[in-house]
Design a protein around this nucleic acid. Sequence first.
DNA 1: CAACAATATCAGAAATACTTATGCTATTCT
DNA 2: AGAATAGCATAAGTATTTCTGATATTGTTG
Lengths: 291, 291
Amino acid sequence: MIFGECKLFRDVVYAKSLSRAAQLNGISQSAATQQIQDLEKRLGTELFDRSTRPLGLTPAGKLYADLCRDVLRRAEDFTAALEEIRDTSESTIRIASIYSIGLSEMGRLREEFGQVLPAAAIHVELLRPDRVYDAVLTDQADLGFISYPEHRRELTVIPWREERMTVAAYPTHPFASRGMVQPADLDGQAFIAFDEEVIIRRELDRFFRDSGVEISISMQLDNIQSIKEAVALGSGISILPERTMQAEVEQKRLVSIPLNAPELRRPVAIIHRKKKKLTRAVREFLNFVTG
Amino acid sequence: MIFGECKLFRDVVYAKSLSRAAQLNGISQSAATQQIQDLEKRLGTELFDRSTRPLGLTPAGKLYADLCRDVLRRAEDFTAALEEIRDTSESTIRIASIYSIGLSEMGRLREEFGQVLPAAAIHVELLRPDRVYDAVLTDQADLGFISYPEHRRELTVIPWREERMTVAAYPTHPFASRGMVQPADLDGQAFIAFDEEVIIRRELDRFFRDSGVEISISMQLDNIQSIKEAVALGSGISILPERTMQAEVEQKRLVSIPLNAPELRRPVAIIHRKKKKLTRAVREFLNFVTG
DNA sequence: CAACAATATCAGAAATACTTATGCTATTCT
DNA sequence: AGAATAGCATAAGTATTTCTGATATTGTTG
């Protein structure tokens, strides 16, 4: 019981009787008497006027009764608010994701998981990679979806999938009719690349170097969405995770041509705080996604 | 300590540390830990995020911290208000008095008692007799000053003095030059009497009957003040407690002539609730007045 | 990974709160 | 007024809670 002492006092005032208040609180009359006496001793003032029956309040007792009323009312608000956040935080799954994964996967996941656990509310926030780590570390998100996962001490990293990388080209590009592109074919092609600081760029640079291919970079952008746009507008070709192109391929704004480079894969992982106790909903979701 | 649990929690939040909060509250770190854990168990929610240091609040913990802040603030107001009423109620003496005594005695008593206990504030309320009893019984007054005291179960009656009754006359009345009036002298005089329901009236009626005196009532009033006024204006004579005429006699608006009737005295008493614990100031005052 | 600082846990001791039985007191009824 | 009644106070013993000190565990830092 929270603020039980206040409740007892309020009940005594209301019932004008220690014995009835004791009943209301499931204790003996003697216990109620002792509690009130102890309270009076602590405050150094009589709270009830014992010389009359039914029990009346002294001026100090009136003040304390007001205090109890206010405290109990405030406590009720608290309890209600607590119930509320319990309900919502128990059933909402807060996900932070990098743009590419969020855009290509989250719609599907949300829909499919809705069948499994309809009570859950999935909240997705799309962020730049480092903000995804932050969100998870500061408990603003339960789970984070990232590519090329960095391992950190406070994080649990769950490898999720390795996405195949394919060549992205505009429909009229010569590659568009090919069934498969060889690394060597890329030599000299106008290429739309990621900014240098993006990990995927470094992976591709290494791939080109290893394959002895020299590409000509026609544009540098920092996100997949913009690269797809540039490719569709014919500014060059690129190499992107196949699944992130799905929508544009269906709309025939892009074509995705397999690249003969099995080692070129983008690892996608789910992260969460190592120490955090996951709610049932989050565990179910993780289980559903990875299982 | 009042709301000690809230205080501890607030301190933990403030110090972001159980051990420092424990120090602040003069208990061991272990005790603090256990208290918070017990609180969490009662609420059914974690309040602190233990997976990080310094300790951080969970959303529920934030709610509870707000509750504690509000409760403690409210409790401070209460404590201040309590201190205030304690100070005043400890040092103020609430007196209910009938008009005649209040007017003739209270000024003097207040002044003299001011020398004895300067800290005390004397509050006098002048009321009709039955309201004086009410005021004392309902604890609106600590002491009551009344004449012809009625004894009641819940009251302690302290006889204070027996006031001599003298003849009140206007300065030009034949009695004015007398040194003493005999009961028989009153026969046939125009007399200003109390209303029938006033006790003093019944006492005087008995006196007249016992003395075989027949007076002629020229006016009936229900209070001494009005009677003095009427006598001063020459509407007749009256018999009044000597002390209540003091001011008018000094102003030479009335004369007070001794009456040879030693049995005719008005008893004045102080009453208070039998069960009520009198404050020190009130006890001092009683002691001063009666001692 | 070692070292440090803080929290968690455990067991026993101290303090507090509760219960039953009984004494007291205010009120009511006659 | 006095006996009966209902309700509060008190006492003593028991149960429960809370605290402490020692120790284990955990999070952080270099």
